[in-house]
Amino acid sequence: MQAPLKSLVWAVCLCTLLGFVGEAATTSAAEPVVPPGITLERGIVFGKGGEQELKLDIAYPKSTDGQLPALVFIHGGGWVGGDREAFLPLIVQFSQAGIVCLTVDYRLAPQHRFPAQLEDVKCAVRWLRANAEKYHVDPQRIAAFGASAGAHLAALLGTTNGDARWEGSGGNADQSSSVCAVVGLSGAYDLTLGYENSVKQSFFEGRSVRGMLESFLGGKPADKGDAYRSASPVEHVQATTPPMILVHGTADTLVPIEQSEVMEQKLKAAGVDVEFFRLEGGTHSSFGKDAQQSMLKISESIRARLQPAAAK
């Protein structure tokens, strides 16, 4: 990546200021201003989830001397809401740093339950790899970036690399859905634990967590234990899991930081490269104390994970 690091810092800052991490961010973002040198394509059909067409938006530099890294952005919304447009300003900003960026839709619960959402985001990665030449993407440098429920799906993308059980039939079956790295903001990684601990949360947040999980997985852990385990990234961690960047606020009361702590422990035990940014005072939709410094460090970490192998 040759663009200045400040572009990445501003991109992460946008994510925070516009509240895209929060589960309540279910409304579409305003149309972003596309700067000179960047192309934004909207509403591309990348595959099908059952009978539903799946769409993405993609932003990329108009000219490049070689292959570029790519980031697949996955929105939050508790698996029951949200859409790809929430990340539109962010993909435009990141594309200025020399990254091909796409933000994707996926089927939502309760109409569509797990693993529909994972199948759909895997389909998006396969589509990008199939179109790598067109967009000047390095197929070896495709990473996933998710916030909240999107962080959960991004982590599942990484931990199920190479596992054919979760591919679905959305299109481009000849391509790999593997990613080289994962960035997760305020994610849930052990869904059984999340449900069990929801009784310790406030009345409204605990009820919200239970409602989202039951919609996503079709019931309570007592009845759907296998689904809760299958949908938990911590259950799929192995030595071949790609590097992960975990970001979580210490004051997040909707998805407590314990979720990232448990994920970090699993990754370290498997020998996986993991960097955990613990944001003091950060909530589910803010970066807490020393936000600017935290964003700088996170941006640098993302930049490092997307460097060509020879440059690392």
Results as ranks from 00 to 15, higher is better:
Met1His: 09
Ala11Gln: 01
Cys13Leu: 11
Cys15Gly: 14
Gly19Gln: 06
Phe20Tyr: 10
Gly22Val: 05
Thr27Asn: 11
Ala29Ser: 15
Glu31Gly: 06
Ile44Ser: 01
Val45Thr: 14
Lys55Cys: 10
Ala59Ser: 04
Asp65Thr: 13
Val72Trp: 01
Gly82Arg: 02
Asp83Met: 07
Pro89Ala: 03
Leu90Cys: 08
Ile91Leu: 03
Gln93Asp: 12
Ser95Cys: 06
Gln96Pro: 01
Val100Ala: 00
Val104Asn: 04
Pro110Trp: 06
His112Tyr: 10
Arg113Ser: 06
Arg113Gly: 05
Ala116Ser: 14
Val121Glu: 10
Val125Tyr: 03
Asn131Phe: 04
Glu133Pro: 04
Tyr135Lys: 05
Tyr135Glu: 09
Gln140Cys: 10
Ala143Gln: 10
Ala144Cys: 05
Ala144Gln: 09
Gly146Cys: 04
Ala147Gly: 11
Ser148Asn: 05
Asn161Glu: 08
Gly162Gln: 11
Ala173Val: 08
Ala173Glu: 15
Ala173Asp: 15
Ser176Gln: 11
Cys180Ile: 06
Gly184Phe: 01
Ser186Val: 13
Asp190His: 07
Leu193Phe: 14
Gly194Lys: 03
Asn197Gln: 15
Ser202Cys: 03
Ser208Thr: 11
Ala222Ser: 15
Ala222Val: 14
Ala227Leu: 08
Ala227Asp: 12
Arg229Val: 13
Pro233Asp: 06
Gln238Leu: 07
Met244Glu: 11
Ile245Asp: 01
Val247Ser: 02
His248Thr: 09
Thr250Tyr: 01
Ser260Tyr: 09
Gln265Trp: 05
Gln265Glu: 15
Leu267Cys: 10
Gly271Lys: 09
Val274Arg: 06
Gly281Ala: 10
His284Glu: 10
Phe287Asp: 09
Leu296Ile: 13
Glu300Arg: 14
Gln307Phe: 07
Lys312Arg: 15
